[in-house]
Simulated assay, not measured.
Amino acid sequence: MNGHVCGLADDPGFQATLFVAIDFEGTTPKGHPPQPIEVAALGLRHTPGRGPVRSGLVYESFIKPPSHAPVTPTDTSQTGITPHDVDGARPAPVVLRTLDEALPMPPVLLVAHHAPVEADILFRYRTACPRLARIPVVDTRLLAKHVLPGLTSYSLDALLAHEDIPQPPRRHRAMDYVTVTAALFHRLLTRAARPRAITSLDHLVRVATRTPRAAQPTQLELS
């Protein structure tokens, strides 16, 4: 993105922000919310003339699910993750606490595709990862709807095809997922620069960010 063309690239807030692409792979136990079995996170920071590129944080880990949410053959067929992969892994609170502690100081924004999935997991484990759970999430699905209105689908696969971004070899593994999410984020911001569809970090937050539940004010009970 050219700073002389795009107001976003000139914005000091945008320049200072570390964007962290994040993804969970998980199990879907019947009658219970999804449980993470893998997480990956990738730091991105704006570089003049190049846009958001890898910077700093790179993190990935298997996660041992609770006993009620084991890795099933269906999970393995979709993700390639086996029960053996997670047997010796640390549980979610430990893994997410480690990732939480690895985050640099603010300003930080998370990036995810269809962010409510990631946001829900972080909210449920907010005691272990209080910083992560309170960081707003830039949803590349919302960003794409703003930058590319009128598409028939805003699924990740559809957007990768539309933008000619190659599918990764392990499409349903967390690190490959965050890598293509980061590539899509970069491409969408590049597109947004040309017609000045997004002009500042505040503008990006308004059109494409979801406020996490952990950061929302709680309603006091009336006496």
Rank of each mutant, 00 (worst) to 15 (best):
F24Q: 04
A69H: 09
V180K: 12
H32E: 08
Y59R: 14
D139Y: 01
P48V: 08
A92D: 07
P12M: 04
A112N: 09
Q35Y: 00
A182S: 15
Y59P: 01
L8Q: 09
T211P: 00
C129F: 06
T28S: 13
T27V: 10
L204M: 11
L132I: 06
H46V: 00
Q78M: 13
P217T: 06
G13I: 02
T218D: 05
P169I: 01
P104K: 12
T74L: 15
Q216Y: 00
P34W: 04
M105N: 06
R196Q: 14
C129K: 09
R187S: 13
A214H: 06
I63F: 02
A208Q: 02
P91M: 05
T72F: 05
P93I: 02
D75S: 10
A215N: 09
G49P: 01
R141C: 14
V5C: 05
D23T: 03
D176F: 07
A193R: 03
H46G: 00
T17N: 07
D87V: 05
R194S: 11
V86T: 15
P93Y: 07
A119W: 01
S223D: 10
A208K: 01
V111Q: 03
C6G: 12
T79N: 07
A102S: 15
R50L: 13
L122Y: 07
A215H: 02
V95L: 04
T28V: 06
E221Q: 06
E25A: 05
T179V: 06
R126K: 13
P73T: 04
P168D: 07
G51N: 05
P29D: 09
R171L: 03
P116W: 05
D23W: 08
A89C: 05
R90C: 04
R90A: 15
L142P: 00
V53H: 02
P29Q: 12
A192S: 12
D10H: 04
R134K: 15
T82Q: 11
Q15G: 08
P29Y: 12
V58M: 09
L8D: 08
A128D: 02
A119Q: 14
P91W: 04
V53I: 14
H172E: 07
G49A: 10
I22C: 06
C6F: 00
I135A: 00
V5L: 15
M175K: 11
H113Y: 04
R191Q: 12
L156N: 02
R173Y: 07
M1T: 11
V117Q: 04
R206N: 05
R126C: 07
H114Y: 13
D164E: 13
H68P: 00
